[in-house]
């Protein structure tokens, strides 16, 4: 196994261009498990932990641009106020040790349907910035996941950052696991209310071949809130509408039976999570209005 260790972003991109087969590694919380379990024997790995640029975050035209190497712990501590949904999801990632090592960039690179960061990135409409020696591009996260553990990256590209608008309303994240901590999602759900644009964003984890957005549910609920003028004058939402929202989220999932749970349970639980997280988010909206 060849071990590549660039110290600058430019060098990293050059190495990736020269070794398109090289597997990027940051926190190693996923890659090392794959190697230890003998599921992957990459011919080369490219260690990105020495690339300081990846560990930076800042603002750009009103968007937050967060380097791919920023850990979950830092997202919670440094960005929790501006990205509350992502911070809530980050708190459910593994143990403190894993959160100190693992990165959102790594989550995106692995593109597991169970990645905890994915639902809040979907619900808040994030962009993924991909770079190669020949330039960079930004892909909406809703177009980024193309199959089970597959994403839209070319093999000469690395993940530079993700971009997302700071919160524009209440956000929630909720994850079902059969243990009360340190657990991979049986299914998960994120919701973001964009009060300014009157939009509802959703993200579903671990209930399909890829992380998914429940687009019908988003449009339905945004419509309900619009029609009743509730965006401007927050009041009780019809429980039937909340129930319908849950059904539409469940319908958007494409779950399977596996070792962590059954497809039927995942759909059932997603409907519950969707109802609850919407209610919590809406309660927050009402309190703040």
């Amino acid at each position: 196994m060849e071990f590549l260790q660039p110290t600058t972003w430019t060098e990293a991109l050059e190495m990736k261009a020269a070794h398109p087969e090289a597997l990027p590694i940051a926190g190693g919380t996923d890659v090392m498990v794959e190697i230890n379990f003998d599921r992957q024997r990459p011919a080369a790995v490219i260690d990105l932990t020495k690339v300081a640029e990846l560990e930076e975050w800042g603002t750009e035209n009103g968007m937050l641009r967060v380097g791919a190497g920023v850990t979950y712990s830092r997202i919670i501590e440094e960005l929790g106020g501006r990205l509350p949904g992502l911070a809530m999801a980050s708190r459910t990632v593994g143990s403190p040790q894993i959160r100190n090592r693992g990165t959102v960039g790594g989550n995106l690179g692995s593109a597991s349907p169970a990645g905890d960061a994915h639902p809040p990135l979907l619900s808040s409409g994030a962009l993924v910035e991909l770079a190669s020696a020949s330039g960079s591009r930004r892909v909406p996260v809703r177009e980024f996941f193309v199959g089970p553990k597959r994403n839209a990256m070319r093999n000469d590209e690395l993940i530079a950052a993700f971009l997302v608008e700071p919160t524009r309303g209440p956000e929630q994240f909720s994850k079902v696991g059969t243990r009360n901590a340190m657990v991979i999602a049986v299914c998960s759900f994120a919701i973001a209310l964009d009060v300014e644009r009157k939009r509802v964003g959703t993200g579903i984890g671990s209930a399909g071949p890829t992380p998914l957005a429940a687009i019908d549910a988003e449009e339905f609920m945004a419509g309900v809130l619009d029609e009743s003028g509730l965006w401007e004058r927050p009041a009780d939402v019809d429980p039937n509408a909340v129930a319908r929202f849950g059904e539409l989220v469940a319908a958007a999932a494409r779950p399977i039976d596996d070792v962590r749970g059954t497809a039927a349970y995942r759909r059932h639980a997603l409907a519950v999570l969707a109802r609850r997280t919407f209610t919590w988010a809406w309660d927050e909206r009402r309190r703040s209005a």
Binding site: S174, N180, A181, V183, S188, R276
Partner: peptide
């Protein structure tokens, strides 16, 4: 559900 925030 613990810290996974499944119920209040």
């Amino acid at each position: 559900g613990g810290v996974s925030n499944t119920t209040h």
